[in-house]
Amino acid sequence: MDTTTNDLNMNLFDRVLDKLCLTPIGLAGLILLLILPFIPPFNQEYMLRWLIYCGFIAAMSVGFDFTAGFINIVNFGYMAVAGTGGYTSALLVLNAGLSPWIAMLAGGVSSAILGLVIGMISLRLRGIFAACLSWFFGLAVMGLAIKMVWLTRGPLGLRVPRLFETESNFPFYFLIVILVYLTYLICKWVVRSKMGLAFQAIGQNMDAARTSGIDPVFYRVFNFTMSCAIAGVLGGFYAHFYGILTPDMMHTSKTVEVLAVAYIGGRGSLWGGAVIAFPFIFLMEIVRSTLSHLPGLNLVIYALVLILVMIYYPGGFSYFYDTHIRQPKNRALRYFLNGRDA
C-alpha cells in the first residue's frame, strides 16, 4: 500500500504520475494500448472487437477487485448488476429518447441503487454467505430480465443504438481504454485515502476493525455501491457497443469470467486484472475462433488456469510481479518499474 508522499525532490513529471496513480511502466502500457490499433495485426475490425471485449472485462475486473480484494466479499452477481445498468441505459435511450451518453450514467445510478440494496441486505452476512446472497440477487435480476418480456423483450433481446454512429470500432476502443483507466484511477484514489485502509481492515478482520473504531456498515455499503456504480456504467457501454442486449449477459458464467480474470491478475491490486485481461482474454478469443470445431475448449483452458492459479499461486500475477520483477538491481530499471517513491 503506497501512500502519497509530498517529497520535495520529486520533479513535476513524477508528481503528476503519482497523482495519476501510474508508474512509468504503467504509463508505457497505457500508451501501448492507445497505439495498439494502429499496429498491423491489430488494426483489423474483428481484432479490435476482441480488444474491446478485453477492455470491458479488464474494467469490470478492476471494479470487481475493488470489492473482492479489499473488503473480501465476492460479489457473485456482478454481471447481473452490470446488466441492470445496461438495461436501464438501453431502455432510457429507446423509450425516453435520451442520449446514450447520459443514459450510460443513468445506468450507473440504477446499478448503484441496486448495489446499495445488496450492500444493505448482505450486511448481516459474512464471506461466503454475502457472496451467495449477491448471487441469488443476480439470479433474481436475471430471471426478471427474462420474464418481463413487455419491457425487455425477454430472451429475444433489445436492439440498442450504438454510442457512435460509425460502423468502425476505433472510437469504441479508445473509449473503453479510457474507461479502464478511469475505473482504475477512481478506485485507486479511494483506496489510497484513509478509506482504503478501512476497507482492508474490514476485509482482514472485521472484529479488530470495529474495535479500532471503524464503522463497517458505512464502509461496506459504500464499497458495494461504488463498485456496482462502476459496473452499471460499464454495462451501459456494453449495451451501446454491441447494439444488442440479452439477459444472457447477466449469467453467472459471465461473472465467473470477470472473477477469473480478477483473481488471476491478483486480488487486492486493482491493476492486476486490468493487465492480465488484455493478453488472456485475447488469447482465449483466438483459441475460440481458430478451434471452433472444439466448442468449450477455451473455457476448459480458462478453468484450468483458474484452478492452477488458485492452488499454486493464490496471489496471482500482481504478487508474482511484486516479488520477482519489481526490485531489480539496475536503478534506471527500478525507476521505470516503480516510479520515484520506491
Binding site: G296, L299, V300, A303, M310
Partner: peptide
C-alpha cells in the same frame, strides 16, 4: 470456493467437448 468455481466451469466444458 473459487477453486470449485473453476472445477465447475472445467467439468461443464469437458462434457461439452
Amino acid at each position: 470456493f473459487l477453486l470449485t468455481v473453476g472445477v465447475s466451469v472445467l467439468l461443464i466444458n469437458l462434457h461439452q467437448l
